[in-house]
Amino acid sequence: MSRRDQIRMTEDEVREYFDQQKVINVASIGPNGRPHLTPLWYYPYESGVATWTYATSQKAKNLQRLPEATVLLEDGDSYEKLRGISMEADVQLVEDTAEVTRMGITLMQRYAGAKPGDPVPDQLRSFIEGQAPKRIGLVFRPTKLVSWDHTKLGGSY
């Protein structure tokens, strides 16, 4: 078995990793043809991830022009602890304010430590409803996914 095969995550491990991590790095193509890289909070969605951003942001403009991105999640502070996922993705831009509101609530509840189905505090709902008209939702659907988990090597190289 190749080293690559040894460190590849299973589908269940990929889902668990999406659940555990907190920040994605999203690369889109800027107007000058160069990669534009930005960190974003996210939540797991279907087989990929979703988030929101300001509709006037550079990443939003890039993704409106070319709705494709590369997304990276990674952690580990030494070689034997490196884990991560890189995915090429088609990007769905969500402009419906009610859906963007739902996405914003899902995102903020996740980072507040709430569980799915927990009640949404009125103050949070009010804040998100005020933000949603200025934002768009982004849904990243993987077309190619590569994963690695060096902990599976047991400290060997």
Rank of each mutant, 00 (worst) to 15 (best):
D19G: 13
T10C: 02
N25Y: 14
K22M: 02
M87P: 02
P121K: 11
L37Y: 02
D5K: 15
E16T: 01
V49K: 10
A89N: 06
Q123H: 10
T101E: 15
P133D: 08
L72T: 02
P142E: 09
R15N: 13
H150F: 15
V71Q: 06
Y157H: 13
K59Y: 01
T10K: 10
T38C: 04
I7R: 06
Q58P: 00
P142T: 04
F127L: 15
A114V: 00
G33E: 02
G117A: 01
L124N: 05
G33R: 05
L107S: 13
V23D: 02
S47V: 07
M9C: 04
K152N: 03
H36K: 07
I85M: 11
G76D: 02
P119E: 14
T101F: 14
N32L: 07
Y111L: 13
S47F: 06
R102G: 09
I24G: 05
Y43S: 06
G33K: 05
Q58H: 14
E99D: 08
K61W: 05
Q109W: 08
V100L: 01
V100R: 01
L66H: 01
G154L: 03
V71T: 10
T10N: 05
M9Y: 03
R34N: 09
Q64V: 08
R110A: 10
S57M: 09
M9V: 02
P39R: 13
I7P: 02
F127K: 13
G30S: 08
D122N: 03
R34H: 11
V26D: 00
S78K: 05
A112L: 11
F127G: 08
V100P: 06
R141P: 09
E95H: 12
Q109P: 04
L93S: 11
